[in-house]
Design a binder for these strands. Structure first.
Lengths: 196, 196
DNA sequence: GACACCTTACTAACCAGTAAGTAGAGTTTC
DNA sequence: GAAACTCTACTTACTGGTTAGTAAGGTGTC
């Protein structure tokens, strides 16, 4: 048995969970170790024990996102393209419903210029992966005949990603944004009503 | 003659100019009065003389944007819809080319939860105005037969706004984003090559 | 002398980060 | 099997820097 290691992992995970919530609602520059430690019920220095520098915490957060996103993608590579798109919409809705969070790529690219180089590198990789995935959906949908749109799959995937990223942010000022955007993306892809 | 008033206006304007640059590159939470005062060559308290609270500066910034955007819209209400769209693209490019700035609505909605209530209210109004304008372009383009797209003009305008907002942010990780996005929006509107 | 526009000098709060110490659980050594 | 140790996961206490914001004073212009 390794209760010590379990406890360590548990605290680290809880730190990451709280930091993730703060990142997606307030941004990396607008939360501090105090926010985390008071929420967690420990002292400030305890956070530094697990993540010595704030940069370490930021990098760990993005790396966790990347792993999670990879699992998300892998888990549904057998689904039809339009079902994958609907899953992506559901994911987007889930962000918004949880305290009007925005997507990680949105906060990371917006604060990009103020982030340490290690975080910028991780953010670049993360954005690339998300973009590739959106492009694959658009390409597969065209290939299997379920989606019909003008332009290239590369540009269409990019547009969907950019629109949802911007849409999650705009939704904070008007909650009707996301439903309208989803409808419009479906319309532009020549999709009818969403699948159940 | 009013040299005193001119000097005041001039300094206030320069403060706003520097603050605007900082807002669009770093965000509201990631710049301080020190950044402005050192750039301007004055002491910290001089900024507080013109804008007592940082909130005052933030509100003044958004109000200036709103006035500027209104002039931008008014100045080209006689242009054809697709020419107005191209002007909007040009505006977007100009932001990016100036130190990879993002659009004001992007930073304001991303940092929304951390902004003082006065700034949130101004941001709401600003976003509404931008959204209305994008929708009017989509509607006018459909009405005059120059644009052809699926879905409503409301949703299409919103999608263009959201995509360009997200696109300006994503462009920081890959400069090919904006050109691809512009091409795709034109394609989705049934527009051919951009007008000169 | 009143006013606009600054300065110096300061406060209190917050920030990331560090150093040194401690409690407890597990491991080693004799 | 008990004393000695080591390790994890913290704590207290602190540093130096930055933050927004204020108070009081100076200087030039009308």
């Amino acid at each position: 048995m390794k209760p010590a290691a379990d406890a360590k992992n548990d605290t680290s995970k809880r730190i990451l969970d709280i930091a993730e919530q703060l990142l997606l609602t307030r941004g990396f520059n607008a939360f501090s170790y105090q926010h985390i430690s008071s929420e967690l019920g420990v002292r400030n220095a305890a956070i530094h024990y697990h993540f010595p520098k704030k940069t370490d915490l930021g990098v760990a957060l993005i790396q966790r996102y990347r792993r999670r996103f990879q699992r998300f993608v892998d888990a549904q590579h057998t689904l039809a393209p339009q079902q994958q798109l609907e899953r992506y919409f559901t994911l987007t809705d889930a962000y918004f419903e949880q305290d009007q969070q925005i997507c990680p790529s949105g906060i990371l690219t917006t604060e990009y210029q103020t982030l340490p180089a290690e975080m910028q590198a991780e953010a670049n990789a993360f954005v690339d992966e998300m973009r590739d995935w959106a492009v694959r959906i658009a390409a597969a949908g065209r290939d299997d005949g379920s989606m019909h749109y003008a332009g290239t799959a590369e540009a269409m995937g990019l547009l969907m990603l950019a629109a949802l990223q911007g849409g999650l942010q705009l939704a904070r000022t008007d909650q009707s944004v996301l439903p309208a955007l989803k409808l419009q993306i479906r319309a532009l892809l020549g999709l009818a009503t969403p699948l159940p």
